[in-house]
Design a protein around this nucleic acid. Structure first.
Ligand code: MN
Ligand code: MN
Ligand code: ZN
Ligand code: ZN
Lengths: 120, 120
DNA sequence: GAATGCCCTGCAACTGCATTGCACTTTAGC
DNA sequence: GCTAAAGTGCAATGCAGTTGCAGGGCATTC
């Protein structure tokens, strides 16, 4: 099952949600798919994306992610038309000036708009 | 009830969630508080913040927000210790380079780390 | 002052997504 | 082949958000 899920992820250009998997693998159990994603995430194969759509999405990690540390510090793009979420590894997150006393850790940056296939 | 909620919001330095309100106004109904926030948001009084904590938080808008358009294009900061979320209106979101064909709309930028009261 | 209508409130119920427990099956190691 | 571990399926739960509906306050109108 996990191999099938991994194969599916490799073919996607956009991030997938659990319900996406559920729709595609309609014969498989929801929980199995859920745990597959969780395991992949733990092992550093995929990273999760909270794009504000209500459902967490997952995408394959770039090379160099380890179980200890995910460095998915790239921008994510959520298309408001097709509701797909894309990783934009080329668009790095710039440094943000913080007020005195604040120390930065992770950053979550999600842009919204229309993607290249949805523009008209 | 709404006046009480508004009064409460005015006294906060951090964004509040629905359950925060629920805890404070323990005699009021959850739904009434929920709808108060929704009404405030519609009218341009508050803006909602998705900080990734699982619960949407709300904070008063800066001057100039209208029912039609919220311009809360500032950075939000989520403290991983006290789990409070702060608006950082001084930290503007820089422009992000997008790939060809992508057009930008809203941006959600949440930084995580420790706030000025939680640093040790 | 009674009737009408609107707005606010409270109760109940429902949805969607995430998560866990437990039993069963399959796989891998010996 | 036997045994332990890993993977899977089913059930149930939790939590945040949301909606429908009915009752109550209040002001306007006749
Ligand atoms: Mn990504
Ligand atoms: Mn804000
Ligand atoms: Zn699109
Ligand atoms: Zn803090």
């Amino acid at each position: 099952m996990r191999l099938l899920v991994l194969d599916y992820l490799l073919k996607q250009s956009a991030a997938v949600s659990l319900s996406d998997l559920e729709t595609y693998f309609h014969r498989a159990d929801r929980i199995t798919l859920y745990r597959s994603l969780k395991t992949f995430e733990e092992k550093g194969l995929v990273h999760s994306i909270d794009d504000g759509s209500g459902a967490v999405k997952y995408a394959l990690c770039p090379d160099g992610c380890s179980p200890q540390e995910h460095h998915d510090l790239h921008v994510h793009f959520f298309c408001t038309r097709c509701r797909e979420t894309f990783c934009l590894p080329k668009s790095r997150i710039p440094d943000i000036a913080l007020p005195e006393g604040f120390s930065a850790g992770e950053v979550n940056l999600v842009m919204k708009g229309t993607c290249n296939t949805c523009r008209g």
